[in-house]
Design a protein around this nucleic acid. Structure first.
Length: 311
DNA sequence: AACCTTCCCTGATGGC
DNA sequence: TGCCATCAGGGAAGGT
């Protein structure tokens, strides 16, 4: 499930590998991931990859006259295939993560798009569940801003301020978990990093945002950045399908405190991590570190609830 | 407007 | 061995 750190890892990989390359041809296997006409898609031929951008979980290839906007959904993979490197002869399954792919691989039945570059390499889009989306936009002023206008605060940008974050709580009554998954709040946070940020902030995922103390919101503001930062630092979280642009897995799955650790002892207090369902999403938390009840207004806990950095 | 539910999709997994 | 049900989940759509 590519979230901000995974998409950013791919963006950086593509940037260092194919920036400036000319798009010679495009091979499309029509399916629902294409939210553009074939004519729009073929229109990118002859253009160059001028910049690779990211906004939330969206990856954007900026060409002379077009933007190609990718959303990887659940199982989308964007990789570079280099004829000078050998293709893996078969998929390799990682023992603990279930990862289905290592290094580069020839297009298979799940490969929906091949972007052939001038130097013989190609960019492949592969997506097993096809929850991903590919859009082609004419590169006019403001078109990106309009297309991505529904997205909330961009972490690591100057707009990600405490004041703006606190403003997002206005008139909201939902539980904090779906609040964090709402892309109009903070763009790029998904299920893994929401659970991790809540753990570090010591906040139970079922608590209504209305009932959060100011200091808890401040912690959340900080732990969202910390978890995303760690995710990028360790090259993304490879639970099942994520690979970077070179087809290699990240290592952040080894750093997680709660996600997919249900039944295992908490890294802080040894209480077994629990898994519950909150608004139709699997949710992991530590019952010891993330109490369900609202903390007392008078007595702040003497023992700090601010969890350690996951690194 | 905010919130909630359903649906899309395939592969892995477990029960029988 | 094979068949079927279940689960995973980001975000759009539609209903309340």
């Amino acid at each position: 499930m590519p979230e901000l750190p995974e998409v950013e890892t791919i963006r950086r990989g593509l940037e260092s590998a194919v920036l400036g390359a000319r798009i010679e041809d495009v091979v499309q296997k029509p399916c629902r991931v294409f939210r553009c006409t074939s004519e729009e898609l073929f229109g990118i031929r002859g253009q160059h990859l001028q910049r690779l951008l990211r906004r939330g979980k969206y990856l954007i290839a900026e060409l002379e006259n077009s933007y190609v906007v990718f959303h990887l959904g659940m199982t989308g993979q964007l990789t570079v295939r280099d004829p000078a490197r050998e293709d893996a002869s078969r998929f390799i399954r990682h023992e603990t993560t279930g990862l289905q792919r290592a290094h580069q691989h020839a297009p298979d039945r799940h490969t929906h798009l091949e972007i052939l570059l001038g130097d013989g390499r190609e960019i492949l889009y592969r997506d097993i569940r096809m929850f991903g989306k590919i859009h082609v936009l004419a590169r006019n002023a403001g078109v990106l801003e309009s297309f991505l206008g529904h997205l909330g605060l961009e972490p690591f940008s100057s707009e990600y301020t405490l004041e703006a974050f606190l403003e997002k709580f206005r008139n909201r009554k939902v539980r904090v978990k779906p609040f964090l998954l709402d892309q109009s709040v903070v763009a790029g946070v998904g299920n893994i990093y929401a659970d991790e940020a809540l753990f570090l902030a010591g906040i139970h995922p079922m608590r209504p945002v209305r009932g959060l103390r100011k200091y808890e919101k401040v912690r959340l503001f900080e732990t969202i950045l910390k978890t995303l930062e760690a995710g990028i630092q360790f090259g993304g979280t490879s639970m099942s399908d994520f690979v970077n642009s070179e087809g290699r897995q990240g290592s952040n799955q080894e750093k997680l405190n709660v996600y997919a650790r249900d039944g295992q002892p908490c890294t802080i207090c040894a209480t077994p991590i629990q898994k519950i369902v909150v608004s139709q999403r699997g949710t992991h938390f530590c019952p010891g570190c993330q109490p369900r009840s609202r903390p007392s207004r008078i007595v702040r806990r003497s023992r700090t609830r601010y969890r350690r950095d996951p690194s």
